[in-house]
Simulated assay, not measured.
Amino acid sequence: MAVTIAAPITGTVIPLTEVPDPVFAKALVGPGAAIDPGEAANLTVTAPVSGKLTSLKPHAFVISHRPDQGVLVHLGIDTVHLKGAGFTLRAEAGQQVEAGEEIVVWDLEAAREAEKSVIVPVVVLEADVEDLTLAEAGPISAGDALIRIG
């Protein structure tokens, strides 16, 4: 059964290999794509897929859409060091969410002031890259198809 992973933010799709972090760039966490929000000052980050919000941190969350597979959305690179600054959670870990539902509101100023990358990797955990079809590099709007599984 095919699953569509939507873009959680509006921006420009870039290959995971261009993410300035080797863990993501080498797909060590899993395959996927990334989105550069450009000059956006604030982002409403939405659920890319329906499922259970199994992990929620200010800078990252995982939604399990299958018992054996989840989708990681990581807001920026090394943004864990911001200790939540600029992030407002709109959901709670453990809850069921629908694709497009608001999860985090992100004020990017804190990340930019700390000179952190604001690129957003979207990774399918426990997936083989051969099973994925990725959106082409270029502009994308929140809710548009970013990754297709199967």
Rank of each mutant, 00 (worst) to 15 (best):
residue 24 F to L: 09
residue 129 V to C: 11
residue 70 G to A: 12
residue 40 A to M: 08
residue 140 I to C: 04
residue 68 D to V: 10
residue 102 E to H: 09
residue 57 K to G: 06
residue 43 L to I: 07
residue 124 V to M: 07
residue 99 A to D: 09
residue 130 E to N: 13
residue 121 P to Y: 05
residue 147 I to H: 00
residue 134 L to N: 00
residue 30 G to Q: 09
residue 124 V to C: 10
residue 122 V to F: 04
residue 141 S to M: 10
residue 125 L to W: 03
residue 76 G to T: 10
residue 104 V to S: 03
residue 6 A to K: 12
residue 89 L to W: 02
residue 82 L to Y: 03
residue 87 F to R: 05
residue 106 W to F: 13
residue 34 A to D: 10
residue 66 R to L: 15
residue 15 P to G: 09
residue 125 L to E: 02
residue 136 E to W: 00
residue 128 D to P: 06
residue 150 G to N: 14
residue 34 A to G: 11
residue 82 L to P: 10
residue 40 A to V: 02
residue 24 F to V: 05
residue 26 K to M: 11
residue 43 L to A: 06
residue 138 G to E: 04
residue 29 V to A: 14
residue 97 V to E: 03
residue 62 V to F: 03
residue 120 V to F: 02
residue 25 A to H: 11
residue 5 I to A: 11
residue 68 D to T: 15
residue 35 I to Y: 00
residue 79 T to M: 07
residue 37 P to D: 00
residue 125 L to G: 04
residue 5 I to Y: 13
residue 139 P to M: 01
residue 50 S to E: 09
residue 83 K to Y: 09
residue 70 G to N: 12
residue 6 A to P: 09
residue 92 E to A: 14
residue 80 V to F: 02
residue 109 E to Q: 15
residue 14 I to H: 08
residue 53 L to H: 09
residue 122 V to H: 02
residue 119 I to F: 03
residue 11 G to S: 14
residue 147 I to W: 02
residue 139 P to E: 13
residue 111 A to T: 01
residue 11 G to T: 12
residue 80 V to S: 08
residue 93 A to Y: 05
residue 65 H to P: 08
residue 63 I to A: 06
residue 40 A to R: 05
residue 94 G to I: 10
residue 43 L to W: 06
residue 105 V to Y: 01
residue 87 F to G: 07
residue 148 R to Q: 15
residue 75 L to S: 05
residue 71 V to K: 00
residue 68 D to H: 13
residue 138 G to H: 07
residue 14 I to F: 10
residue 30 G to W: 14
residue 54 T to H: 05
residue 106 W to P: 00
residue 66 R to C: 12
residue 105 V to L: 03
residue 30 G to E: 11
residue 92 E to Y: 07
residue 103 I to F: 05
residue 73 V to T: 10
residue 125 L to T: 06
residue 29 V to T: 14
residue 116 K to D: 03
residue 39 E to V: 08
residue 87 F to T: 11
residue 65 H to W: 15
residue 72 L to Q: 10
residue 126 E to Q: 13
residue 22 P to R: 12
residue 81 H to K: 15
residue 114 A to Q: 08
residue 79 T to S: 07
residue 1 M to D: 12
residue 110 A to E: 13
residue 44 T to V: 14
residue 102 E to W: 01
residue 49 V to K: 02
residue 5 I to N: 10
residue 57 K to Q: 15
residue 2 A to I: 14
residue 136 E to I: 00
residue 83 K to M: 13
residue 125 L to Y: 03
residue 143 G to L: 06
residue 101 E to C: 01
residue 8 P to T: 04
residue 113 E to D: 14
residue 104 V to W: 01
residue 23 V to A: 14
residue 82 L to S: 11
residue 106 W to H: 01
residue 55 S to I: 11
residue 37 P to Y: 00
residue 8 P to Q: 03
residue 136 E to T: 09
residue 92 E to C: 12
residue 134 L to P: 05
residue 82 L to E: 06
residue 93 A to D: 05
residue 63 I to G: 06
residue 114 A to M: 06
residue 111 A to E: 01
